[in-house]
Computed example of a mutant assay.
Amino acid sequence: MLTFKKESKKVCILTGTRAEYGLLYWLMKEVASDDDLELHIIATGMHLSPEFGLTYQQIEADGFSIDAKVEMLLSSDTPVGLAKSIGLGVIGFADALERLKPDILVVLGDRFEILAAAQAAMVARIPIAHIHGGETTEGAFDEQIRHAITKFAQWHFVAAEPYRQRVIQLGESPDRVFNVGSPGLDHLQYMDWLDRPTLEQSLEIKLRSPLFLVTYHPVTLNQESPSIAMQELLVALDSFPDATVILTYPNADTGGRVLIKQIDQWVTHNQHRAKAFVSLGQQRYLSLMGEADVIIGNSSSGLTEAPALKKATVNIGDRQKGRLKAKSVIDAPERSADIITAIHQALSSDFQSMLPSVNSLYGIGNASQQIKEKLKAVTLQTQKSFFDIEHSF
């Protein structure tokens, strides 16, 4: 009697930045190790740029095979340049998806690379699973992109219950919206941590306390040049001459390149205590976060991973405005005096003694396995009905 092996469901995971790949790493591992699923990976955006470290090589070094590379990132961070990059992305993703023919496309977050892929998948009738929907970042046009991708997607994996409610408010059926927590916290459960001496050897710098980990991205909806806010931040760091400062470069957003120049100039004048990196990789970044005294900037990791590690965060400006924030997060305007005050508060004995009681608002670190099991179970379809909420005005 002939038996036929059940055909594997082809799950295609898209990644365009170092940070996003870090969040997707354990989901890729889960999908790759499941006999009922077939993993495909598309790398795009900053991963393929020498300027941003050619980080696709880290994906391959981690043992994954990249099935398609979609070049879309123009050497321009102007609004016109980014708009043209989106157009190139739609063309490139159309070709890649036609060749790979995945059953599901998995995307995460709110970047313009993801918007381009979602458009191509929608037209190709490939269902989309979206991770980290329902959140708000009122200082960036990522806000609009995230909610647009929600409407493209068939399934939604959110990081907290308020975000689940917001996705439903956008008209998505509750039975397609799953609160699984942030997959970034999975690293806290499974990662091999680097101790301080190993980090010092790897980074080639002595990590003396206080240790600051700094990441600042452009606030893309701000009418002012992001260089003004970066200068305020660097002036604030000058007020802590005994601190060791590790900075990571911003993403390829509007105005990002001028920030890189400012960072490099500041580090040149502070070589005895500061270093900047295009990309640290998830293991070094999170291990460094675990050793740091304060996380400074406007990266989402200061709101998700840092509280789970019981670390103080000084969150600068409006980029993360609207997101859930643990009591370990101190908000500061983009002015040097306010940033200095916030850092002093974060370093104070009272604040540091409170940190062990901080609870994560983004799950407990088992999101990837939950997402994988849902992807296995879902019935493939692109049609969906708008879910109306009963309301009165």
Rank of each mutant, 00 (worst) to 15 (best):
M1N: 04
L2G: 06
T3M: 14
K5A: 10
K5N: 11
E7N: 07
K10P: 02
V11K: 00
C12D: 03
T15P: 06
A19G: 09
A19I: 00
Y25K: 15
M28C: 13
K29S: 14
V31W: 03
D34A: 01
L37P: 02
A43R: 07
G45K: 04
T55P: 03
I59A: 03
A61C: 10
V70P: 06
L73A: 02
S76E: 12
D77M: 02
T78R: 01
A83V: 15
V90M: 14
I91M: 14
G92S: 06
A96Q: 06
L97I: 10
R99C: 05
V106G: 06
L108R: 05
F112Q: 04
E113L: 00
H130M: 04
I131L: 14
G133E: 01
A140D: 08
H147A: 00
W155L: 04
A159V: 11
P162V: 04
I168Q: 04
I168L: 03
Q169M: 13
P183Y: 01
G184M: 02
H187G: 10
L188A: 08
Q189V: 10
D195M: 05
D195A: 08
R196T: 05
R196H: 01
L199H: 02
E200S: 09
S202R: 15
L203R: 13
L203A: 13
K206L: 15
T215C: 10
V219A: 06
E224H: 12
V235S: 06
P241G: 13
T244K: 06
V245T: 07
T248Q: 11
N251K: 09
R257L: 15
D264R: 06
W266C: 08
N270E: 07
V278D: 14
V278I: 13
G281T: 08
Y285G: 11
S287P: 08
L288N: 12
M289I: 02
G290N: 15
A292C: 11
A292V: 01
I296Q: 08
G302V: 03
G302D: 12
P307T: 14
V314Q: 08
N315L: 14
I316Y: 07
Q320Y: 09
K321S: 10
A326H: 09
V329L: 08
D331K: 12
P333L: 13
R335Y: 14
S336Y: 14
T341P: 03
A346G: 13
A346L: 07
S349Y: 12
L355S: 09
S360C: 10
G363F: 08
G365P: 10
N366L: 13
N366S: 10
Q369N: 10
K374A: 10
V378S: 11
T382N: 12
F386H: 15
